[in-house]
Protein backbone atom coordinates (compact mmCIF):
# COMPACT_ATOMS: atom_id res chain seq x y z
CA UNK A 1 0.00 0.00 0.00
CA UNK A 2 1.33 3.36 -0.93
CA UNK A 3 1.30 5.92 1.79
CA UNK A 4 1.82 9.57 1.32
CA UNK A 5 4.25 10.96 3.79
CA UNK A 6 4.59 14.67 4.04
CA UNK A 7 8.09 15.97 4.00
CA UNK A 8 9.15 16.81 7.51
CA UNK A 9 6.62 14.42 9.06
CA UNK A 10 8.38 11.64 10.90
CA UNK A 11 7.45 8.27 9.53
CA UNK A 12 7.52 5.26 11.76
CA UNK A 13 7.45 1.63 10.83
CA UNK A 14 4.41 -0.33 11.81
CA UNK A 15 4.51 -1.77 15.29
CA UNK A 16 6.89 0.84 16.57
CA UNK A 17 5.34 3.24 19.02
CA UNK A 18 4.87 6.68 17.64
CA UNK A 19 6.20 9.28 20.02
CA UNK A 20 3.22 11.58 19.67
CA UNK A 21 1.01 8.71 20.76
CA UNK A 22 3.11 7.60 23.67
CA UNK A 23 3.90 11.07 24.85
CA UNK A 24 0.33 12.32 24.65
CA UNK A 25 -0.11 12.54 28.39
CA UNK A 26 3.50 12.90 29.37
CA UNK A 27 3.03 13.33 33.08
CA UNK A 28 0.16 10.93 33.25
CA UNK A 29 1.40 7.75 31.69
CA UNK A 30 4.13 7.35 34.28
CA UNK A 31 1.71 8.04 37.10
CA UNK A 32 -0.77 5.59 35.62
CA UNK A 33 1.83 2.86 35.48
CA UNK A 34 2.78 3.43 39.10
CA UNK A 35 -0.87 3.34 40.11
CA UNK A 36 -1.24 -0.03 38.42
CA UNK A 37 1.78 -1.37 40.26
CA UNK A 38 0.37 -0.13 43.56
CA UNK A 39 -3.14 -1.44 42.83
CA UNK A 40 -1.69 -4.81 42.00
CA UNK A 41 0.30 -4.87 45.24
CA UNK A 42 -2.84 -3.87 47.12
CA UNK A 43 -4.83 -6.72 45.61
CA UNK A 44 -2.14 -9.33 46.20
CA UNK A 45 -2.60 -11.31 49.37
CA UNK A 46 0.08 -10.71 51.93
CA UNK A 47 2.32 -13.81 51.87
CA UNK A 48 2.13 -16.08 54.92
CA UNK A 49 5.83 -15.60 55.53
CA UNK A 50 5.23 -11.92 56.16
CA UNK A 51 2.27 -12.47 58.45
CA UNK A 52 4.21 -15.12 60.38
CA UNK A 53 6.98 -12.66 60.93
CA UNK A 54 4.53 -10.04 62.15
CA UNK A 55 2.96 -12.48 64.58
CA UNK A 56 6.16 -12.05 66.60
CA UNK A 57 4.72 -8.72 67.61
CA UNK A 58 1.64 -10.43 69.04
CA UNK A 59 3.88 -12.52 71.26
CA UNK A 60 5.74 -9.45 72.41
CA UNK A 61 2.60 -7.58 73.34
CA UNK A 62 1.11 -10.67 74.99
CA UNK A 63 4.17 -11.13 77.17
CA UNK A 64 4.19 -7.44 78.03
CA UNK A 65 0.56 -7.61 79.12
CA UNK A 66 0.95 -10.71 81.28
CA UNK A 67 4.21 -9.95 83.02
CA UNK A 68 5.52 -6.60 84.05
CA UNK A 69 8.98 -7.74 85.02
CA UNK A 70 12.22 -6.39 83.61
CA UNK A 71 11.96 -4.86 80.17
CA UNK A 72 14.12 -6.08 77.36
CA UNK A 73 15.27 -2.81 75.96
CA UNK A 74 17.95 -4.20 73.69
CA UNK A 75 17.87 -2.62 70.29
CA UNK A 76 18.14 -5.94 68.55
CA UNK A 77 16.69 -8.78 70.56
CA UNK A 78 17.89 -12.31 69.90
CA UNK A 79 15.89 -14.23 67.38
CA UNK A 80 15.69 -17.24 69.70
CA UNK A 81 14.07 -15.25 72.47
CA UNK A 82 11.18 -14.12 70.33
CA UNK A 83 9.20 -17.31 70.65
Amino acid sequence: MVQKVKAGTPHFAEGVAVPSQVGKSKEDWIGNQFRRIYDEALEDDIPNDMMDLLSQLDNISASQDSSDDQTDSDDEPDKESSN
Binding site: I37, Y38, A41, L42, M50
Partner: peptide, 14 residues
Protein backbone atom coordinates in the same frame (compact mmCIF):
# COMPACT_ATOMS: atom_id res chain seq x y z
CA UNK B 1 2.80 -0.76 65.42
CA UNK B 2 1.76 -4.00 63.78
CA UNK B 3 -1.34 -2.42 62.25
CA UNK B 4 0.77 0.36 60.83
CA UNK B 5 3.17 -2.13 59.32
CA UNK B 6 0.41 -4.24 57.79
CA UNK B 7 -1.10 -1.11 56.27
CA UNK B 8 2.28 -0.19 54.79
CA UNK B 9 2.90 -3.58 53.17
CA UNK B 10 1.24 -2.83 49.80
CA UNK B 11 3.29 0.36 49.51
CA UNK B 12 6.44 -1.49 50.47
CA UNK B 13 5.79 -4.19 47.88
CA UNK B 14 4.98 -1.66 45.18
Amino acid sequence: FKEGIVAAIPSLRA
